[in-house]
Nucleic acid binder design. Structure first.
Lengths: 159, 159
DNA sequence: ATAAAATGTTTGGAAGGACTAACTTTTCCA
DNA sequence: TGGAAAAGTTAGTCCTTCCAAACATTTTAT
């Protein structure tokens, strides 16, 4: 039966459904079109394909829903997306818009290994409350002034 | 005159020329084909396009060279590639093959801002000889055993 | 020197993704 | 309740990237 994996672009369409669903029950073609920056015919076309592959349910002029299979794929993409976004935003201090944008493009191309490592890295860095504020502050300073401290001062244990 | 920016794929073709050129002077279509995992006709086609855009020089059955403009683009792509590869390999400890692979796909999609921040981050982390070995060792441990130290021990200043 | 092997090119076609223009449903409100 | 506006779809086209098959050139080895 050779379940062919959705393309990167198709993953985007699936992910957008999860992201737009927040709260309300229905997702509209126009919303997806807006969110993905494509025109509505592109969405209709994508939904047809995804529907054929059993990943979404969609009837003409009707609502869009994920099937259980589609839900799985979408969640997975979303998870990758979040890991990248957090890294960019919380560690590299990239602004929210750029972070979301870059994450959206990177999420499709990272290997499972890199994905796992990155998630661990984020946990590692952000889970050390005694260290990371200092750490990130130093990085911030470095970004702005090019100043690299060579030692680990006492501050390390404070705040 | 609207210099249209090369597509991600075209950037790959350009970058492969720099990477294959190492040492020898000539780059062959067959090498590019091999390196990029595409058949030769694809390379010929790409070279025609790049040639039209003034980024490479290439005559039938002859050698492939970058023009000054092509050189600039290729170097830029390569720089992005290296930043990502180093991050994956030297900080996240992803194996070399996976790192090269992922970097190759990510290099096209990161924004200039993220690129700059990432480069700074790598410098920052790797330029602190008194701290980063401890740091990376702790991360290594976390990857393997899930152990997150909560404080910054004296070791921080050693080795 | 010459034929086989290796290299490279051309042609034609497929698949994915996106768009415009024109058409159809649905929604909404006067 | 009967259109107009909004939402959605269809049809037709374009562009990028790739490939296989057939053809052309260069290299190499005898």
């Amino acid at each position: 039966m050779m379940e062919t994996k959705p393309t990167a672009r198709m993953e985007d369409y699936l992910e957008s459904i999860i992201m737009l669903r927040e709260g309300k029950e229905a997702v509209r073609v126009s919303q997806m079109s807006q969110a993905l920056g494509v025109k509505m015919p592109s969405v209709t076309g994508a939904l047809k394909k995804l529907s054929d592959e059993g990943l979404v349910e969609h009837q003409r002029y009707g609502r869009v829903q994920l099937t259980p299979d589609g839900e799985k794929v979408a969640r997975d993409v979303f998870r990758r997306h979040e890991a990248l976004r957090r890294f960019l935003e919380e560690i590299l201090s990239v602004d929210a818009d750029t972070a979301a944008d870059d994450a959206c493009k990177m999420e499709h191309v990272i290997s499972p290994l890199t994905q796992k490592r990155l998630a661990k890295f984020i946990d590692f860095v952000l889970s050390r409350p005694n260290v990371h504020p200092y750490w990130l502050k130093m990085f911030e300073r470095y970004v702005n002034y090019g100043e690299i401290p060579d030692e680990c001062p006492e501050k390390c244990l404070e705040e």
